[in-house]
């Protein structure tokens, strides 16, 4: 089984910030908007390099989304930055009407997604945002797994015309995606080849899935790990091909099982070749304060949970 090396822990939000910095130099139509979280979103370099193209909106996320929609009229490509909770739930109607329904070329970039936001607790830990965003017609939904992939995705979405939700996180996590790997929206990345189970993971759970695959290999179970960075449009072909081979699937995501990647995979299988599936996800609950590692453990979002789910799903074949 192919092994992956962590080249050093880095936060995905820095991948966004560095990608945005690069875009600032290469694409003069890119503008950045922030709702009083410039440092948290790692947007300082863009702000310093291009003050005329950086817009501090203040703590007014609804206004930020509307301004971003308006800025597209005249050819700008706005990247909005705030926490995932304030990027989605707080401004759902603004995104729905002014961005998605109006087909505006706005890139909604959301940090601190999921439970690994940590100590701030459930008010800030959105576990419903993938569902909210994927339900909007025309919205592309991306959840990247590490620094390199987040940077590549940030560059890629500037070239894609249409609304995009780009979800990433706060903590420093393993960075293992090759630096030069091109980001293709809607194209799954197969990380390992296996025959007994398909593990479809997104975001921070991708590294956990790789760790789980090593544990499973030691136990004689061959796992095929697929990184689904684009939840919508979903790479159905990659999933169906893999599950056609392995006969079962575990989905893993830092999100509620309702509305998340797992449901999208389940629909794909139900419409084509139904197969046993287990969902590594939060179980329709809010989070709480704690360190990211403690929370991943308590809410069953780590490699151990994926191993357990894999053994269960194989027994159901």
């Amino acid at each position: 089984m192919k092994k992956y090396t962590n080249t050093g822990n880095k936060d995905t939000r820095s991948g966004f910030g560095d990608g945005l910095t690069e875009l600032g130099k290469t694409n003069e139509n890119v503008v950045a908007l922030c709702a009083d979280l410039t440092g948290s979103l790692k947007m300082n370099a863009f702000k310093d390099n291009h003050p005329e193209r950086f817009f501090q909106i203040g703590i007014a996320e609804a206004n930020m989304i509307g301004i971003a929609a308006g800025m597209t009229i005249g050819g700008k490509i706005p990247f909005t930055g705030t926490f995932a909770n304030f990027s989605t739930g707080r401004v759902y109607d603004q995104i729905r009407q002014s961005v998605a329904y109006s087909d505006k070329n706005v890139k909604i970039c959301a940090s601190h997604a999921g439970i690994t936001l940590g100590e701030d607790g459930a008010t800030h830990q959105i576990l419903e945002d993938i569902g909210l965003m994927k339900m909007l017609p025309g919205m592309t939904v991306i959840n990247t797994c590490d620094y390199n992939q987040t940077k590549a995705a940030t560059l890629a979405i500037a070239e894609h015309h249409g609304p995009v939700y780009l979800r990433f996180g706060r903590p420093k996590v393993a960075n293992f995606t090759p630096e030069d790997q091109k980001f293709e929206i809607g194209k799954a990345v197969q990380l390992t080849e296996g025959t007994d189970v398909t593990i479809v993971a997104t975001g921070h759970l991708v590294w956990e899935a790789l760790q789980a695959a090593e544990t499973l290999e030691a136990a004689g179970i061959s796992a095929e790990v697929i990184n689904i960075h684009t939840i919508k449009p979903l790479d159905e072909e990659a999933i169906l091909t893999s599950v056609g081979k392995t006969g079962c699937v575990v989905t893993a995501e830092e999100h509620n099982f309702l509305g998340g990647l797992g449901e999208s995979v389940a629909r794909t299988l139900a419409l084509n070749t139904p197969a046993p599936q287990e969902f590594v996800a939060t179980q329709d609950t809010f989070g709480e304060s704690g360190t990211p590692a403690q929370l991943m453990e308590k809410y069953g979002l780590n490699a151990a949970s994926i191993v357990k789910a894999t053994k269960k799903v194989i027994s159901r074949k």
């Binding site: 597209t72 005249g74 009407q97």
Partner: peptide, 14 residues
């Protein structure tokens, strides 16, 4: 309530 934000955005782009 959304149109003023949108109009401001277009004004900024202009």
């Amino acid at each position: 309530g959304q149109g003023m934000s949108v109009a401001i955005g277009t004004a900024l782009t202009k």
